[in-house]
Design a protein around this nucleic acid. Structure first.
Length: 236
DNA sequence: AAGACGCGCAACCGCTCTAGA
DNA sequence: TTCTAGAGCGGTTGCGCGTCT
């Protein structure tokens, strides 16, 4: 029987109060993000470390972008879901200012329904294999990502003894189980490019190259396939 | 006006993974 | 090598709010 992480009866649960938020923000501004399990005691918060971490990551970080998803974010989210599946933290890492929880909620409440309404069977949908990925320009590199996402939140120092937390880097290893097996054991995701320039899948071409059409852009594909939404094609 | 219903979001739960002893 | 604690993740739940009847 697993012991609950917050079994202390003095631990608060439920919505955070303004005072609690302020305590946590002040503590992290002073000491950095470090050792979540000790933060509640050190900051004088009647919360468990897990709860503090979640509150900070999902609501208090200064670099968060709130509000409705823009159309391009929505489009990128669909592409990333097609590529990564329900790895929300990885998807969120590629949507600057968005959290995994936010991405997950948005997917479940908006996009899933949208796709279902469009007749996309998400149960049938499986993550794309190397057929498709091999034709996508996934030129992402950890260094390029590092230039897009700061190593820490603006104005927030990091404890020198601690590794960065998840949103400040992309956890390549955790992607590896499926993605790494896609292409001769070569890890693909470290090369993921946020541009996600999609080239038409080779399986759409005639195999011999005779009469083979080369689609350099999504627009080309749309023209050829008469598709209104290139992203939707990922789910078909 | 009020009760029912649905939706969106915040937070919790329980699991896996990893690092250190 | 094994054990343990902490961190992180995805799934699920519960609450508040808006809309509908």
């Amino acid at each position: 029987m697993r012991k609950p992480c917050c079994e202390d009866e003095h631990i608060n649960k439920g919505a955070w109060s303004k005072q609690e938020d302020e305590k946590l923000i002040n503590y992290i501004r002073t000491h950095g993000e470090c050792c979540w399990s000790s933060i509640p005691k050190a900051a004088g918060l009647p919360r468990c470390g897990k709860s503090c971490r979640l509150r900070w990551i999902n609501h208090l970080r200064p670099d968060l972008k709130r509000g409705k998803f823009a159309e391009d974010e929505e489009d990128l989210l669909m592409k990333l879901y097609a590529l990564l599946g329900n790895r929300w933290s990885l998807i969120a890492a590629r949507l600057p200012g968005r959290t995994d929880n936010e991405v997950k909620n948005y997917w479940n409440s908006h996009l899933r329904r949208k796709l279902i309404n469009m007749g996309v069977d998400l149960n049938k949908h499986r993550r794309l294999g190397n057929r498709f990925l091999g034709n996508m320009n996934l030129g992402w590199s950890p260094s390029s990502w590092a230039t897009q996402v700061p190593a820490g939140s603006p104005g927030v120092q990091r404890c020198s003894s601690c590794a960065p937390t998840s949103y400040s880097h992309v956890d390549d290893d955790r992607v590896s189980d499926e993605a790494s097996s896609l292409k001769d054991g070569t890890r693909l995701l470290p090369d993921l490019n946020l541009d996600l320039n999609i080239r038409s899948p080779s399986f759409l071409h005639s195999p011999g190259g005779q009469g083979q059409q080369h689609h350099d852009t999504v627009e080309d594909m749309k023209e050829d396939m008469g598709e209104s939404s290139p992203t939707l094609m990922l789910f078909r």
